[in-house]
């Protein structure tokens, strides 16, 4: 094996942590990005607009 156990564990602990922090920030940024607001509001309301049987065209 190229990586020994110790290296892998160290990698998991350090890079894994930064990966998670980075990913959390990215998700937050995407959700809170001002220009996305309109799209999200629209999506939230869109499902209420048509009845279940509206033809799909």
């Amino acid at each position: 094996m190229i990586f020994d156990h110790h290296t892998l564990v160290g990698f998991a602990k350090s890079v894994g942590l930064f990966y998670l922090i980075g990913l959390s920030l990215a998700a937050l940024a995407y959700a809170l990005w001002p220009s996305n607001r309109e799209r999200f509001d629209r999506a939230a309301k869109a499902i209420l607009e048509d009845s279940e049987d509206t033809p799909c065209l």
């Binding site: 998700a27 995407y30 959700a31 809170l32 999200f40």
Partner: peptide
């Protein structure tokens, strides 16, 4: 809707 995305 934003919370639903963060939660996801």
């Amino acid at each position: 809707y934003r919370m639903s995305i963060v939660g996801f």
